[in-house]
Simulated scan of single mutants.
Amino acid sequence: MATIEDVARRAGVSQSTVSYALSGKRPISADTRRRIEKAIEELGYRPHAGARALASARTDVIGLMAPLRTGVDVNVIMQFVAGVVTGASRSGYDVLLLTQDEGSVARVTSSSMVDALVVMDVEDDDARLPALQNLRQPAVLIGLPTDPHGLSCVDLDFAQAGAVAVRRLVAAGHRSIALIGSPAEVVSRHTSYAERMTRGFVGACEAAGAAYLVLPTAASAAGAVASVDRILAMMPDVTGLVVHNEVALPHVISRFQMRGRGVPDQVSVVAVCPENVAVSLPSPVTSVDIPAESIGQIAVEMLTGLMKDPSRGEVRLVSPRLTERGSVHEVEVVTGA
Rank of each mutant, 00 (worst) to 15 (best):
K38S: 14
A39I: 10
E41Q: 12
E41Y: 06
L43F: 11
G44E: 07
Y45D: 02
R46Q: 12
H48W: 09
H48C: 11
H48P: 08
A49S: 03
A49Y: 03
A49C: 04
A49K: 10
G50K: 06
A51E: 03
R52Q: 14
R52P: 07
A53R: 01
L54C: 11
L54Q: 08
A55V: 04
A55Q: 11
A57G: 08
A57Y: 09
T59N: 05
T59A: 08
V61M: 09
V61T: 06
G63Q: 07
M65F: 04
A66L: 14
A66H: 03
P67Q: 03
L68D: 07
T70N: 10
T70R: 12
V72D: 05
D73V: 14
N75M: 14
V76E: 06
V76M: 07
I77F: 13
M78A: 11
Q79V: 01
V81I: 15
V81W: 12
A82I: 03
V84I: 13
V85M: 15
V85T: 03
T86W: 05
T86F: 09
G87K: 00
A88Q: 06
A88T: 05
S89D: 08
R90T: 12
S91M: 14
G92N: 13
Y93P: 00
D94T: 09
V95I: 06
L96Y: 01
L98G: 04
Q100C: 11
Q100R: 14
E102M: 11
E102G: 07
S104D: 08
S104K: 03
A106T: 10
R107Q: 14
V108H: 14
V108L: 02
V108D: 01
T109V: 09
S110C: 04
M113N: 07
M113C: 09
V114M: 00
V114A: 07
D115Y: 08
A116G: 13
V122G: 02
V122W: 02
V122D: 00
E123N: 15
D125N: 14
P130H: 14
A131K: 12
L132Y: 07
V140R: 12
I142W: 03
L144S: 02
D147L: 10
P148I: 10
L151A: 06
S152H: 10
C153G: 02
D155R: 12
D155W: 13
L156W: 01
L156G: 00
L156E: 02
A159L: 00
Q160F: 00
A161Q: 01
G162V: 02
G162D: 00
G162Y: 00
A163L: 02
A163D: 03
A163R: 04
V164P: 00
R168P: 03
R168F: 15
L169P: 02
L169S: 06
V170W: 03
V170K: 00
A171D: 15
A172C: 11
A172E: 09
G173S: 09
I177C: 01
A178G: 13
I180R: 04
